[in-house]
């Protein structure tokens, strides 16, 4: 029986290898044909005219993620402090399921609400010709990364030893001063991990922002229609012919995105390891 369980254990490793090998194998041909430089730094993506530069996609993903983190992290972090330290038990028992519901709502549902409510609202409020924009995508992403940030930060804050807080209180700090000046610094690795996880979520999200970002491969600007790395794949995957350069270029985008994610995973690993050592 041990052999069977051993094989089951190896399956996960096998899958990771399989994914890596296939992504590299399918992603490289187009990069070789287009040229690494032209692919990564080309500023025009026009599959019809055979132009495959993904710089606008990369920059959009970076700006979109940065925007979502900028909006989502403060709200998520403060909600986590509220849940872990301040909220009366009854209130926390209401807020916590709300957060996990927010985490469970499918991304197409976020996309639908964004498309029908948020996009027209942005168009009217900012007097734009169309509301499909980087800003709409950032707002949707900010809401979507909230649960990851809240959950991980709350766990980190809850694990801070009571003695730290009691010592601070005994020295005359108020409860809130204690939470912000003692508990939060003590939980800072966990909170950092939460932020990194949020970055990973935001950079990997596809369907929700596919429905609100407009999907034109412009250089990123808040009110312009933009295309992310993820939506760049999503918008053309069903319409590209098998074996065409266009489809192979989509696989290459996938490879670039995969590298981004691996980088974030390594970062996450470092942050968490650091936590264990301290």
């Amino acid at each position: 029986m041990q052999a069977v369980f051993f094989l089951c254990g190896l399956v996960a490793v096998g899958f990771v290898l399989l994914i890596t090998v296939y992504l590299v194998l399918s992603g490289l041909p187009a990069i070789r044909q287009i040229g690494l430089f032209d692919f990564l730094l080309g500023s025009t993506w026009a599959a019809g005219q055979g132009q495959f530069g993904i710089l606008p996609l990369i920059l959009t993903s970076v700006w979109g993620t940065a925007g979502a983190v900028l909006l989502g992290v403060p709200v998520g972090f403060l909600t986590a402090v509220f849940l872990a330290k301040v909220a009366p038990r009854r209130l926390a028992d209401v807020v916590r399921p709300a957060v996990s519901l927010l985490a469970g709502i499918p991304s197409v549902v976020y996309g639908l609400v964004g498309m029908i409510v948020l996009v027209p609202w942005l168009r009217d409020a900012l007097h734009l010709p169309a509301g499909d924009s980087l800003l709409a995508a950032i707002l949707v992403l900010a809401v979507m990364i909230l649960p990851s940030i809240i959950n991980l930060s709350e766990t980190a804050l809850a694990a801070v030893p009571k003695e730290y807080e009691e010592a601070s209180l005994a020295l005359g700090a108020t409860d809130l001063e204690t939470y912000f000046r003692v508990s939060v610094p003590a939980a800072k690795s966990g909170i950092a991990a939460a932020v990194v996880l949020g970055i990973g979520r935001a950079i990997g999200e596809a369907m929700a922002i596919l429905m609100v970002a407009g999907n034109v491969a412009n250089m990123p600007a808040l009110t312009k229609s933009v295309r992310f790395l993820t939506t760049g794949i999503a918008i053309e995957l069903n319409y590209s012919a098998e074996g065409s350069l266009q489809r192979q270029a989509l696989f290459s985008i996938g490879l670039v995105l995969f590298l981004f994610i691996m980088l974030i995973n390594v970062l996450l690993d470092l942050v968490l390891k650091h936590d264990k050592e301290v």
């Binding site: 996960a12 990771v16 994914i19 990997g204 999200e205 999503a234 994610i261």
Partner: peptide
């Protein structure tokens, strides 16, 4: 952990 961190659009490609 790596599998858990891969976004679904990459799984779509896979």
């Amino acid at each position: 952990e790596t599998l858990a961190g891969i976004p679904s659009i990459i799984y779509a490609l896979v």
